Amino acid sequence: MYFQHAPQVWAAHPGLVAGLLYAEGVDGKPRADLPLADLHAAARERLAAGTEASFPEIQAWRRAFARMGLAPTKYRCASESLLRRLRTEDALPEVHPLVDLGNAISAAYAVPVGILDVTRIGDGIEVRPARGDERYLTFGGAEEHPDPGEVIFADPRGRAHARRWTNRQSGWSSVRDDTATILVVVEAMHDSASEDVPRLLAALAGELRRGWGVSSRWALLTPAAPRFEF
């Protein structure tokens, strides 16, 4: 199995820093408390100094969305949506321990974090422009077709596991109660992304080890080494 970005994605977004983490044995409840409150507090501390729109991590994704022809205030990257919700509602929803951890880390670092159930992604994922005939499944169970040229997470079966890149994840490979093996996708474009993405991945690996007692394998992708195999 694999995860990779198409060459045209690297060419259009040369500042991209992508990190992948693979972990097995993360089913069931964590055996230790997750630091959700601390991560939320870290995000709130940043928000106290200015809205999420002022964060360099969010500004970089807004510029990327604009390059893709998407209105940045209509379509937000996942981390911006989480921070906006935390700022306006002072809380994030509780969904599943893995999802809650990913959301909390995403908010604390202001970087999109996607968690995919490996058993449901087929042979692999390529981040590429859509043809328009791929199938995307909403969390509500409805099928959509991405717009031609829209950046998606595509598998060989023509399913889109994310729309508008980091805007919306798909129901095809979302975390469920029986999820045991995960692939975590972390993507950033701000100036310090090459330092922040490894820090985020190391923090996540540490919490998975503490919470579920598992070891993780993670790596950074580059145009010269664009493929992560697992």
Results as ranks from 00 to 15, higher is better:
residue 148 P to S: 10
residue 91 A to V: 12
residue 148 P to K: 00
residue 134 E to P: 02
residue 58 I to P: 01
residue 92 L to F: 11
residue 56 P to V: 12
residue 172 W to K: 04
residue 167 N to M: 10
residue 54 S to A: 15
residue 40 H to F: 13
residue 71 A to M: 15
residue 30 P to I: 11
residue 185 V to Y: 09
residue 143 E to F: 12
residue 45 E to L: 14
residue 83 L to N: 01
residue 137 L to T: 05
residue 11 A to H: 07
residue 139 F to P: 10
residue 22 Y to P: 03
residue 70 L to I: 06
residue 98 L to C: 12
residue 165 W to I: 05
residue 71 A to D: 15
residue 116 L to N: 11
residue 3 F to S: 06
residue 110 A to G: 05
residue 90 D to Q: 13
residue 25 G to P: 12
residue 19 G to C: 04
residue 222 T to D: 06
residue 157 R to A: 14
residue 223 P to G: 06
residue 126 E to D: 06
residue 29 K to I: 04
residue 68 M to I: 01
residue 73 T to K: 13
residue 98 L to I: 14
residue 19 G to W: 03
residue 92 L to E: 04
residue 79 S to M: 02
residue 10 W to T: 04
residue 90 D to N: 10
residue 196 D to Q: 14
residue 135 R to T: 11
residue 85 R to M: 07
residue 124 G to D: 07
residue 159 R to T: 02
residue 85 R to I: 02
residue 37 A to Y: 07
residue 19 G to E: 02
residue 226 P to K: 07
residue 131 R to S: 14
residue 38 D to S: 11
residue 159 R to L: 09
residue 23 A to N: 08
residue 14 P to S: 02
residue 42 A to V: 11
residue 198 P to C: 12
residue 49 A to T: 14
residue 136 Y to I: 06
residue 223 P to Q: 10
residue 5 H to T: 01
residue 211 G to K: 10
residue 95 V to H: 09
residue 207 E to S: 01
residue 113 V to T: 07
residue 186 V to L: 07
residue 56 P to N: 13
residue 124 G to N: 07
residue 133 D to W: 01
residue 41 A to K: 13
residue 30 P to L: 12
residue 12 A to R: 13
residue 11 A to N: 04
residue 179 T to A: 10
residue 22 Y to K: 11
residue 99 V to G: 01
residue 69 G to Y: 04
residue 16 L to Q: 12
residue 40 H to R: 13
residue 228 F to C: 02
residue 230 F to L: 15
residue 174 S to H: 15
residue 8 Q to P: 08
residue 8 Q to I: 13
residue 157 R to Y: 02
residue 212 W to G: 08
residue 73 T to S: 13
residue 94 E to V: 15
residue 2 Y to D: 02
residue 13 H to E: 15
residue 190 H to L: 05
residue 61 W to P: 00
residue 58 I to H: 06
residue 149 G to S: 13
residue 194 S to H: 11
residue 194 S to Y: 04
residue 64 A to W: 02
residue 5 H to A: 08
residue 146 P to R: 00
residue 107 A to P: 07
residue 138 T to S: 14
